[in-house]
Amino acid sequence: MIQKRFENSAKAVADIHDGATLLVGGFGGSGLPSHLIAALVEQGAKNLTVVSNNIGAVSDGVAALISNNQVKKIICSFPVGPHADDLIARLQNGTIELEISPQGTLAERIRAGGAGVPAFYTPTAAHTELGEGKETRVFNGRLHVLENAIIGDYAFIKGYRADRWGNLVYNKTQRNFNPVMATAARITIAEVDEIVEVGELDPENIATQSVFVHRLVKLEAKREEGVLANG
């Protein structure tokens, strides 16, 4: 039996080191682990490579890390919008690197990382600027681009309910990138709205199994508490 101990979000992110690769779940604000991101802003780790669908608002999401000079590279599918001015300025002065990956390709690169598949071919991005410089191969008369899997040192994910072992249930569209990111990181940290006892979750509704969740933080109106398991 793994020894578990209580933690808050600040302690859960305390060991994230400079230069780490961080996977951040969410689609816009839905399923965004905003408390963990805020804790990392306070913690201050720098030169991060961040993988996320989009960068979020200036005061929230990955944009908060960018504004705090903590990100050296962002891999995402949607960097545009009125919130992207800071990112654009940093791209222009060369202080941050941007890699755009089509949304389905990004999800599959993360899924492949969690499944132990090092790379895969896809027709998406063939004959476009996003495919330039990448290895290609023709299958059934159609050009495919080789895409590398993504693996993170850490993953921040947002769940709805968890049991004390770390099995997770998501709230509808808040699931999005969170389950695949949970499988593709060395240490996965989940923030959840509620923690219940083992056996209270319907096994048919568990989307992320406890083996993939290492740290668990419960969010409450006035305080945070959580369970740190498996690292």
Rank of each mutant, 00 (worst) to 15 (best):
N176Q: 08
F177I: 01
N148T: 11
V180S: 12
L143F: 07
R175N: 08
W165P: 00
G141H: 11
A184G: 02
D163W: 09
G159I: 04
F139S: 06
I150N: 01
N176S: 14
A155M: 05
G152S: 06
I151G: 00
A149F: 04
P179Q: 07
K158T: 07
L168P: 07
I150C: 02
R137Y: 10
E147G: 00
R164P: 01
H144I: 12
L143T: 13
I157R: 00
R164L: 04
L168D: 15
D163R: 04
D153S: 06
T173V: 08
N171F: 05
I150R: 00
L146V: 06
A155D: 08
K172A: 12
G159T: 08
I151W: 00
R161I: 12
N171Q: 12
V138S: 10
K172Q: 13
N148Q: 15
Y160C: 08
A162N: 10
E135V: 08
N171D: 12
G141N: 14
R161G: 04
P179S: 09
N176T: 10
Y160E: 15
Q174R: 02
P179D: 14
Y160P: 00
R175F: 03
W165V: 15
N171G: 07
N178A: 03
I151K: 07
P179T: 07
Y154D: 05
I157G: 05
R161H: 08
A185N: 09
F156L: 09
G166P: 11
R164C: 03
G141E: 13
E147D: 15
A184W: 01
D163F: 12
G152T: 05
N171H: 11
F177H: 15
E135T: 11
I151R: 08
E147N: 13
N148E: 13
V145I: 15
Q174N: 12
I151Y: 00
R137A: 14
M181F: 01
